[in-house]
Design a protein around this nucleic acid. Structure first.
Lengths: 229, 229
DNA sequence: TGGACTTTGTGAAATTCTGCACGAAACCAT
DNA sequence: ATGGTTTCGTGCAGAATTTCACAAAGTCCA
């Protein structure tokens, strides 16, 4: 078994690496050459030991007594996250959000060019939004093959989101960014990330109420405690 | 110690309750009266035992052999998440995203009315977007008091996001929804939820690359395994 | 050179989260 | 009634994650 098995990085660490990358890019932009785990931890709002452990999943790229090199670490994180190449994105659903994503130029420079947008509404198909012409969702398969698409963003209504994801999976797309407020049914071989502002607001609401209750409680009990997320 | 201490719900469960709520609302809309933990688990894409444990943090509201009542559970989840009242939201940053949030009517019916929007650009201040007039960020304190605002959404540029959150905290806002791709420095008494599409795409990229590597590896090793997130 | 200092890398403990397994409690059919 | 069936609630074990603590390995300065 002389396998060159890729080190598996824990899920929790994978979600933090993009955040570190963001910070390191900022440091690089301000001509910082090196950083310590303490410094990065402060900027990322986490524990220094966690930073070191997370970075250690990439390999031993730090120097004891010194720290890490900004540019080198940026490269290593990019390599690990698969950011040394581009991943083409198709937007499914040409409503307000979908068109905004298609027009927004901020993803291409970060390695995720939006190369297509489709809808199932014949009134929208053929219209242009930004540099793209809205295609027919029924041609998704061909589009995915021709344009080498690997990521699909679902911006349809809740009602059509499941058929949208089915179409994407059918077309061979296995990475999905879902903006519809619904839990999509997908095989376990497909990755889904959900972006739902309603959910985020409701989570905030819980902790906000928590604080409110504790303050009220303190008024009558003269006892309180900080709550953080 | 006869304290009426609120049951503390584990963070992991708090993030799932809004998802359950969404599903239950859908069930309610289709006139479903009851559900079992198995059914909800299938719809939410999680384990049935996890559903039962999550719901048990609310109290013992199920009936053995029967299941849970949709409307009753909806009420209990809302109560626990603090959704029986409204939480007013202010948007800081009147750019594309900020104005879109102000115009988007989807939050008010879910209990999060956007009651104000501010910017620091004198050219924008005074203009209207949707039903709101863009205010001056320097009046944030008064606005928060007058309009009873508890949640702030940061849609500024990355460069001004930190001063935006400082202003919000100064004004007494302790729940922040941050759209700027930056880690905000905040006291631990403040809750922050970050919405960063770049981060989400990069996480997807990691697992996508993982799959790609494994397929490539399988071609040369005739061995493979499924990867899911 | 050598000793003081800094910071990484990582075992190991502590904590949190998940999922199994099963008793408890309800319904139902006879 | 009673036995069979369903489904909740939860103790517990195992997995995952976080945090601590410290040896290892480097720098710096006299």
């Amino acid at each position: 078994m002389t396998q060159l098995q890729r080190r598996r990085i824990p899920d929790a660490a994978v979600t933090r690496l993009p955040v570190y990358l963001q910070i390191l890019n900022n440091l690089h932009a301000t001509n910082v050459l090196r950083f310590s785990s303490d410094e990065l931890a402060a900027l990322a709002g986490v524990n220094a030991a966690k930073v070191r452990k997370d970075l250690s999943y990439l390999g031993s790229y730090g120097t004891r007594g010194v720290g890490y090199e900004v540019t080198y670490l940026i490269h290593q994180i990019k390599r690990e996250l698969g950011l040394l190449r581009e991943w083409n994105v198709v937007v499914v659903g040409a409503g307000n959000l979908g068109c905004a994503l298609a027009k927004f130029g901020g993803f291409a420079p970060r390695g995720f060019p939006v190369v297509g947008i489709v809808d199932n509404d014949s009134k929208k198909i053929g219209q242009t939004t930004g540099a793209l012409t809205i295609g027919d969702v029924r041609n998704l398969g061909k589009m995915v093959r021709d344009l080498n698409i690997t990521i699909g963003a679902i911006t349809t209504s809740t009602a059509t989101a499941q058929s949208a994801v089915d179409a994407l999976i059918d077309a061979g797309v296995a990475s999905i960014l879902n903006f519809a407020p619904i839990v999509l049914a997908t095989p376990s071989s497909v990755s889904v990330r959900n972006v739902d502002l309603g959910v985020e607001l409701q989570i905030l609401s819980y902790y906000e109420q928590m604080r409110t209750d504790q303050i009220d409680g303190a008024k009558s009990q003269s006892k309180s405690a900080a709550v953080s997320v």
